[in-house]
Amino acid sequence: MTLPRQILLLYRKDLRVEVRKKESLIAMAFFGVLIMVILNLAAGLDRRLQAEPAAGVLWVAILFSSVLGLGRVFAREKENNCVAALLVSPLSPGALFAAKALVNFTLMSFSELVLVPVFFALFGAGLQPGLPVLLLLLALVNIGFSAAGTLLSALAAGTRRNEVMLPILLYPLCLPLVALAVKATGAAFGGRPMTEIRDLIESMAAFGLIYAAAGYLLFSHAVREA
């Protein structure tokens, strides 16, 4: 079977489970909204947020909630040791990585469908984002975070404390991505044109590329031991 078909098969299988259980998506959206409310407390209750702190609130909510879904996506393969059966099959580990990363990307995108509107309802006053810029930034962060997250979730799933290890491993690596995203989104919220944040966008794309490549190459090692 060709690589794209392997990826599609796995992707559809995972999505079917997700649609049936909805466990990850509900948890992600709920927790994300909760974080926004908590951060609102931290920022001062009756203060209107400036563009950059507001961008920070959005990304913290998205990334902290995403890690809930990310952990489950790989842990599911470990439940009855299905991953062993996948490794014995003709499936290439690269396809497994790509499929899992796509599932994570999809989960993040759907939870953002809830989180972004809620964010604008709570903090949106005075922000003037261009929709295309915002979509581009969301896509870039989703790519980078799901690529790095997929690789590291395989590591975390192999340890005794999956839920604890994943954030510990993932957030340090993603710090630069978050910094870039906050800066770029802050500028976009401030109504500045896309040309001004071009080098930020390029750096974010570089992050996504680096971890997509690293994940594709290293995943087979990680998954064989997990």
């Binding site: 299988k13 079917r16 489970v17 049936r20 599911r76 439940e79 009855n80 040791n81 299905c82 062993a84």
Partner: peptide, 9 residues
């Protein structure tokens, strides 16, 4: 003794 099956499918 592990089933290699997906519980939710």
């Amino acid at each position: 003794h592990q089933s290699f099956l997906y519980d939710d499918l």
